[in-house]
């Protein structure tokens, strides 16, 4: 993996990802996830749906920069159409904005300026994919970074929310390694496809959890934004 992927997938990358639990807080509040076994199942489901979708768009954005394409509005519209939940769109754009801010300092470029002129609040996978290319990485690096973020955020949220053993949760993540590689490699294969033909895996459970979380977040105190 290229160092660009390490930087962008680091939990200390200042993109604002730490305030999102990826639906885990709502799942924990409803006791759908109570221990390591449920957490593993939740993470596999998340990786193979929302994680795969993010990987597909991150890889496509890296490839767009590499090929000199500027179809940012089209990628933005196609990812919107694959994200029916308003709460999830909001979470993606909030993290996208934070990532863009950090990226402007780390990898300033006219390519980035153009992307942000077209989409001032970009979706997280798209901006992360573009930054990966600017930092010298490949589509698969971007795909692997967002796949890892799709499970590492909820995993660390589970430690805080459920008081799970950090060593046990880390082992759960480690066991996901083959699936992470597999999803990222598959996503990289469609990186140069027309945006309208990109895969569109849906996740009804995550959509419902995100909307319910958003409602509860407004009504009561929650630790995470999503």
């Amino acid at each position: 993996m290229d160092v660009s992927g390490l930087l962008l997938a680091d939990s200390r990358f200042p993109g604002g990802g730490h305030v999102h639990s990826g639906g885990l807080e709502e799942a924990a509040a409803r006791k759908l996830v109570t221990g390591e076994a449920d957490l593993a199942s939740f993470l596999v489901g998340r990786l193979r749906t929302a994680g795969e979708l993010a990987a597909v768009f991150a890889a496509a954005a890296t490839s767009a920069v590499q090929r000199g394409k500027t179809h940012w509005l089209e990628l933005d519209a196609e990812l919107d159409a694959r994200t029916p939940s308003p709460a999830q769109r909001k979470a993606s754009r909030a993290q996208g904005r934070g990532t863009a801010r950090a990226g402007q300092r780390a990898w300033p470029s006219p390519v980035l300026d153009r992307l942000l002129a077209d989409t001032p609040r970009p979706h997280h996978p798209v901006i992360l994919g573009a930054l990966t290319a600017l930092a010298g990485g490949e589509p698969q690096d971007a795909a692997l970074a967002v796949c890892y973020l799709a499970v590492s955020g909820p995993a660390s949220a589970a430690i805080r929310l459920l008081g799970l053993d950090p060593f046990g949760v880390n082992a759960v993540l480690a066991r996901l390694a083959p699936e992470l590689r597999d999803v990222a490699a598959t996503a990289a294969k469609t990186a140069d496809h027309d945006p309208r033909d990109l895969p569109a895996p849906g996740a009804p459970g995550l959509d419902l959890l995100a909307e319910a979380h958003d409602r509860h977040h407004r009504e009561e105190v929650r630790l995470f934004v999503s």
Binding site: F42, G45, R48, A77, R196, P201, G202, P204
Partner: peptide, 22 residues
Amino acid sequence: PLLNQSLRIGAPELDGSAAHLA
């Protein structure tokens, strides 16, 4: 595009996951 969703059913690890069909 307004909506583009592809749903997979029948993979046990997805059907049972709270993230997918719970």
